[in-house]
Amino acid sequence: MKRICLLLPNGFEAVEASVFTDVMGWNQVEGDGTTELVTVGTRKELTCTWNFTVIPEMVIEDVIVDNFDALTLPGGFEFAQFYEDAYREDVLELIRAFNEKNKIIASICVGALPLGKSGVLSGRNATTYKSSSSLRQQQLAAFGVNVQADTPIVVDGNIITSYNPATAFDVAFKLLEMLTSEENCLEVKRLMGFVK
């Protein structure tokens, strides 16, 4: 069984988290059955960017990295205090621990910024939210990252990053493919209606 840690800082975007729960859930029931996703919060109760309240299955201090095969991290909004939680030292340490063990790390949109702040993207290719101001991409570059500004999804070794919420399903499917196989991923995509 491949176990995925879905790390949820306060202020995360629900849609960016839900793609991981849906794709891995569909795989568990309709695909090869080899994935299990566990929601892990920075606190016992979280408020999403758009005011959903979420109660995760675990809290970050209870995570044992060796019990997981991948780490996923959605983005969020500044006004919802996403960065306050996502830049906490325990979050950054968890990211580093997953990377040190060469486990897959998948982020969506500004979920790449905590990866950059942790140092795991230093000197590597990645992307983050693309807007007319390029503020978030500039912030990622300041962490020593080779920002691929016009590439929707960037895979560099064990790390997947993307540049907006529209890429979310593609990131989740790429993660599924890396954890299982291309054939299994295509079958899950077909069953979910993404391919005919």
Rank of each mutant, 00 (worst) to 15 (best):
V110S: 07
A126G: 12
T161S: 13
R43E: 13
E93I: 04
N125Q: 10
K189Q: 15
G41Y: 04
T127L: 01
K174W: 01
V120Y: 04
S134G: 04
N67C: 08
P152M: 09
L176T: 04
C109P: 08
N99T: 10
G75N: 08
A97V: 02
V19W: 03
I108E: 06
A126R: 06
F169S: 12
G33P: 05
S18F: 14
G31A: 10
S122M: 15
S122H: 15
Q137A: 06
I60E: 08
T21F: 00
E182F: 08
N102D: 12
N158P: 02
N125M: 11
N146W: 07
F52A: 09
K117V: 14
T53H: 14
D85F: 13
R136G: 00
A86Q: 02
E93C: 04
W26M: 06
E13P: 00
A112V: 12
E182V: 14
D62K: 15
G123L: 11
C185S: 15
R96L: 06
F194L: 12
E78D: 15
I64K: 14
K101D: 00
F77R: 07
K44Q: 10
R136H: 07
N51F: 09
T151N: 09
G111H: 07
Y163L: 11
I55A: 06
T39Q: 13
